[in-house]
Design a protein around this nucleic acid. Sequence first.
RNA 1: GGGAGCGUGACGGAGUAGUCAAACGUACCUGACUGUAAAUCAGGCGGCCGAUGGCCUACGUAGGUGCAAAUCCUACCGCUCCCA
Length: 399
Amino acid sequence: MKNFEIIKKDKKSQARLGILRTPHGIVNTPSYVFVGTYGRFLHLSPKDLKSTGAQLIIANTFHLWEKALKNKLKEGLIHKSFGLKIPVMTDSGGFQVLSLAFGDKNKVGKFMVGDSKADESYKRSKIKITSKGVHFDFKGKKVFLGPELSMNLQRQIGADIIFAFDHITSPLDDFEYNKKAVELTDAWAKICLKAHVRNQLNKKNKQILFGIVQGGLFPELRKQSAQSIGAMGFDGFGIGGSYTKKQISQILKWIIPYLPEEKPRHLLGVGKVEDILEAIDNGVDTFDCVIPTREARHGRLYTKKGHMDIRKGRYVSDQSVIEKGCKCPTCSQKISRSEIRALIKSEDRDINAAGQRWCLMHNMWFFNDLLENIRAALSRGTYQSFKKKCLKDFESNKA
RNA sequence: GGGAGCGUGACGGAGUAGUCAAACGUACCUGACUGUAAAUCAGGCGGCCGAUGGCCUACGUAGGUGCAAAUCCUACCGCUCCCA
């Protein structure tokens, strides 16, 4: 049976409704993927996680590995770690080369604000990239990560869907550098595929491997990368890179036509409300993002009419629920804004954690519900009007 | 009745003559957060202005010394502790 099946396509866009089959269950797509980097969600029990309705979650190979380095990675640890038998992904660790090795130093992250020009002082001074992988400093130690190692680690970790080890570039990198990065990502992709075939040889439930498209902000490189990675026989595709916000849908338009229609597409690290609507419109099936969880921990709560910062003084004695009519675990239990605020403002770590837990469950449920509504709209053939209304409501900011 | 000490911005709490509109913390206000080194971070927080500078009002109250005081002196008010 195929891993992925398209059930319905939107007539006015690239959006599609599908089913993704994994060893630990099916995922209805489009779907949000929540990030539990270290194999857990801070402050949430497995039962809590389940109550959010999450279909698919993702952990990080580099961080799991780095954390478990003292001992040894245990076989198939990831589902035990999350404490739940649900579909799980692991990212390859390629992004950490950008975010850890030089992201901080050069103030380069996933997103750039405005249109940045190449910075003369920008250099990859603390990182050495070879055909085998990347050497860089982490917490004062020399570390190495590459395609072969990432594949082996991901096999041990045991997620349902794993990613090839790629080379992400920064918005400050020029065409030449991006060209090399695409070539390197291609070369590594081949190594990953080979290792993957070997690793999965006698396994009953084979892991699903996604290759990753790069190419920076250059249409010809994006096309080249999509064609090349797209032809390699991966089970699905990740779309990577770092860019300015406005460039997401542009990049997708460059890539999507060259990726095999029948295979799933995952947009790496994008997940604001307006961005996911746009991504789905352009043919993306899944996407992971820290936004729902990180922002929940920081007190930002989502509603259909925008988001609110529950820590603000105006909620001190607000006895209403986060969003009227919301069926999330938090609102269902009638936990008031006032109570959540009091908890999350507490300096006591346990009390504070209890507040964060309510926020986490609400936000995760919110995004799952949003995706469920998107799927329903796709099913009915009303995605375009749904998208329009959803954005209008959300941007009204009357939370 | 006698002795000792203390009174600082919304609160806690530094400062004890000039670099003080006053450290720091909290509260409060704004804003960030997009393949998580993020239960985090940044800015503001007396008033006014023609504002990377200027003016006014401020450190219990009222006076005083001094070029200059939240910082020294006197009195008063209030609070705390000790002895009777």
